[in-house]
């Protein structure tokens, strides 16, 4: 008998007579806030966990200023990032299968996101347009993420509903809530470990062209 057969047999024996009961889902699924309320909450929650949130009518300029302030001269982007978001005065490197070392040599990464969740201050990346592959938002020490106000949902169930199609399509998903952190030393939260130590969210209104 293979291990597979053996385990499935053990399960069959163990569960003889067991029945599957329905799951009560009385928890909150839909949020109640309007768009401004969601965005304001999202902002507070990202800031709570050490992220920086900027609101911008002119993303290209805001992003350029963010990068300049943080001394980032070379940044990585996904090859399909909207050109309207590209900052001036910075060297932009398209991530065309850069090696981990090449990614490590970048000063930061600039991406969009799939959706964001206000209640938890989370941004979700699913490899869609402008988001790049997972390594791009992981190895460089600074992550600048452009979030459309319309893409901010209120609750975790709403966020996961937005990501369901990507999951079914087998696309990898990463949920990011603030910069990397650890609470391993006396449970004191320290922001900045292996993942990007700085996270900047730029809130924009219109979809970039």
């Amino acid at each position: 008998m293979t291990a597979r057969e053996e385990i499935l047999r053990r399960i069959n024996v163990a569960l003889a007579g067991a029945t599957a009961q329905p799951v009560p889902r009385a928890y909150r699924v839909a949020g109640e806030l309007d768009r401004d309320g969601r965005v304001a909450l999202f902002r507070r929650r990202v800031e709570d966990y050490g992220g920086v949130v900027l609101e911008s009518a002119a993303p290209g300029e805001t992003i350029a200023a963010v990068l300049a302030e943080r001394g980032a001269r070379r940044i990585g982007v996904s090859p399909d990032l909207d050109e309207a978001l590209l900052p001036v005065g910075v060297e932009v490197v398209a991530d065309d299968r850069l090696t981990p070392r090449q990614l490590d040599a970048l000063d930061g990464a600039l991406t969009t996101c799939a959706a964001a969740c206000a209640e938890t201050g989370t941004i979700a990346l699913d490899g869609g347009p402008g988001q790049g592959r997972r390594a791009l938002t992981l190895v460089p020490d600074l992550h600048v993420c452009v979030v459309r106000r319309d893409d901010v949902v209120e609750t975790v169930p709403e966020l996961l509903a937005r990501l369901e199609a990507s999951a079914r399509a087998g696309r990898p998903i990463v949920l990011v809530s603030g910069p990397s952190a650890t609470s391993d030393i006396e449970l004191t939260r320290v922001e900045g470990v292996h993942g990007p130590r700085r996270l900047v969210v730029v809130l924009v209104d219109r979809p970039p062209a």
Binding site: Y49, T122, G127, R133, A167, G170, S177, S180
Partner: peptide, 21 residues
């Protein structure tokens, strides 16, 4: 677990993805 609203990173993947990971 950590008393956070959400942990910093949650990774979700299915099998392998060409060009990513």
């Amino acid at each position: 677990a950590t008393g956070e609203r959400m942990n910093p990173y949650t990774s979700l993947w299915t099998g392998v993805r060409e060009g990513d990971g």
